[in-house]
Design a protein around this nucleic acid. Structure first.
Length: 546
RNA sequence: GUCCCCGUAGCUCAAUGGAUAGAGCCCCGACCUUCUAAGUCGGUGAUAGAGGUUCGAUUCCUCUCGGGGACACCA
């Protein structure tokens, strides 16, 4: 909050300054946190880049800039330092004021009331309801759900949807597979189709079938098995702390004729042509976001491909008023991105309104041995299995720490141990410790007064904590800029890393030094609020005791 | 063959083109009569390789090596 305010004021001054100098003002005015060894909170590196254009030495430019940024309010006099930075240090009063704002309204802390609200619909998980949710779906769910919570916290309008591919061919194959399992249970000869679903879970599905299942055909079996799978997906997401605003079925698009109307729409726009008995979308002819080749919408047998209803779904999202669409997919879908981007262009939407986030695969290990996952044999580690064993908190925090691009390893053995390998405990422990401090404070100090004297907070540990809480809003903004929650998770880790040394060095509850106690309690309260909210945004609990 | 992602400490991972590349785990050595030792303090240790762009490269470009994934009128 304080950082944003300084930034805003600095931006307008710098624009004026740049104009006066006849140089182009840098486009964005974000401050960079200063490295640990520098006695400053944040800095501007511009003089280094501007020096050449101005034909002057970087340090001279920095000095000039520093002069132009004097008396900003909230910060000490800016310092020009070699090789050409302008460094800023927050004033103690500003940090104190920031803490008061945080304590007064934790849920509003750092929120920009003038934020230009975006409207985003995030689609994630979207797993086929033909089997249990895989661990990888947990990664997508973490990225999508946490991102949605963060964007809402900033003030944007966000929807979350899971697309269900309940279309014909898949349901039938699932039905034949389940039916075969059912017949096997009856002691009758039957084989799961070689291209069918071999997983053990269909035995349970078959065993749970009602008596009338004896007369079912493959369609009935398909419907039954799919609804059962869908229910298990919903239960898994619920247990994972993920609430979709809507589970959108592909079949709805057929029922509402949206598939046909979308095809008509594309045809009217001249995007569609026929070749070799099939209907194609000219995805390679687009100026913006062209795919490398054209794609089939309707096969020569008259059935639509998966692509056409998917376009219809994206059109539907736009038609419902959403401005930006975010799709979170696994790495196996990366080849699908250019195609969908082209489809977005075909729907007359600008490319910047479509964001595809591809998360890389999760590699599973038991200790040092890789767990081989074969879809054919139906062997895979389910999300439920992992969540039951390591807990939702550990699982979500672990996923949230990594960028979508990282090819991460997930060691089941390690996760099961609930060892300190998982940093979620490190963060949660701060929350539990602070709660404990407050319990003690109530016993020792009794009266609870809200006011405190921030000038009492003089140690480096206290100042570092105060300053770190000021960066919370910036951490959220980074998440927005990259559409990734990992900045927040790492921020919380850093905040926790500053609290523990403070705890060791600074005794909080002290009946003799009541004033100091009150100030430190306020600081603890601020840290607790940030941790609780940060963890909450990541779908992780903030326990009061551990 | 084409395309996408990755390669950072013994391990798992960070770092909007900026300053002395950060954490956690492991290992070694110290800390609990005082608000929770799931903690603290100290020690060891890294940008795969070669060029290029830049005042400055883990970050951008090219190539090489290594790993993962995708290349259907499948979904």
């Amino acid at each position: 909050m304080i950082i944003e305010r300084v930034q805003r004021e600095a931006a307008s001054r710098l624009k004026a300054w740049a104009q006066g100098q006849g140089v182009e003002a840098p486009r964005h005015f974000t401050f960079a946190p200063a490295p640990a060894h520098v006695p400053a909170d944040f800095s501007l590196p511009w003089p280094l880049s501007l020096a050449k254009a101005m034909g002057r030495k970087p340090l001279e430019v920095a000095a000039q800039l520093a002069e132009a940024l004097r008396d900003l309010g909230g910060v000490e006099t800016p310092q020009a330092v070699a090789p050409g930075f302008v460094n800023f240090k927050l004033r103690p009063e500003a940090l104190a004021e920031n803490l008061r704002a945080l304590l007064a309204k934790p849920g509003e802390y750092g929120r920009d009331p003038d934020v230009a609200a975006r409207s985003l619909l995030i689609e994630f998980v979207s797993a086929n309801p033909t089997g249990p949710l895989h661990l990888a779906s947990g990664r997508g769910a973490t990225l999508g759900d946490s991102l949605a919570k963060i964007l809402r916290r900033i003030g944007h309008k966000v929807g979350c949807e899971c697309y269900i591919n309940d279309g014909g061919a898949r349901a039938e194959l699932l039905g034949r597979s389940a039916q075969a399992r059912y017949l096997q249970l009856q002691g009758k000869p039957a084989e799961v189709p070689t291209d069918g679903y071999q997983g053990e879970y269909l035995k349970e599905v078959a065993a749970a079938a009602p008596p009338e299942a004896a007369g079912w055909d493959e369609h009935a079996w398909g419907r039954y098995a799919m609804e059962l799978m869908l229910a298990s997906h919903k239960a898994d997401m619920d247990a994972f702390g993920v609430a979709f605003d809507r589970w959108f079925r592909e079949s709805e698009l057929y029922a509402s004729k949206a598939v046909e109307s979308t095809l008509d729409y594309l045809r009217k726009r001249g995007m569609v042509y026929e070749k070799e008995g099939a209907v194609w979308l000219g995805t390679s002819q687009l100026e913006a976001g062209a795919d490398d080749k054209d794609r089939v919408l309707v096969k020569s047998d008259g059935n639509p491909t998966y692509f056409l209803p998917d376009i219809a779904y994206h059109k539907n999202k736009f038609d419902r008023g959403w401005t930006e669409l975010v799709d979170i997919w696994g790495a196996d879908h990366h080849g699908y991105v250019p195609r969908m981007r082209a489809a977005i262009a075909a729907l007359c939407r600008p490319p910047e309104y479509f964001h595809a986030i591809i998360h890389q695969l999760v590699h599973l290990y038991r200790g040092t041995t890789a767990v081989k996952m074969s879809k054919r044999a139906g062997e895979f580690v389910t999300l439920r299995e992992v969540v039951e064993e390591v807990g939702r908190d550990a699982c979500r925090f672990f996923f949230a720490l990594r960028t979508a691009n990282s090819h991460m390893n997930f060691d089941l053995e390690l996760a099961k141990k609930q060892s300190q390998e998982n940093p979620v405990y490190y963060v949660q422990y701060v929350h539990a410790r602070i709660c404990s401090i407050f319990r003690e404070a109530e016993k020792v100090l009794g009266e609870k007064r809200a006011e405190f004297d921030a000038a009492m907070l003089r140690s480096p540990e206290e100042r570092a904590l105060l300053a770190k809480t000021a960066w919370f809003p910036a951490a959220l903004r980074s998440c927005e800029a990259e559409l990734s929650p990992h900045f927040l998770a790492n921020y919380l880790l850093e905040l926790a890393g500053l609290f523990h040394p403070f705890y060791e060095k600074c005794r909080v509850v002290d009946a003799v030094q009541a004033e100091l106690s009150r100030a430190r309690l306020a600081l603890c309260g601020g840290v607790r609020a940030v941790i609780a909210e940060g963890l909450g945004l990541l779908g992780v609990s903030a326990p009061e005791r551990m």
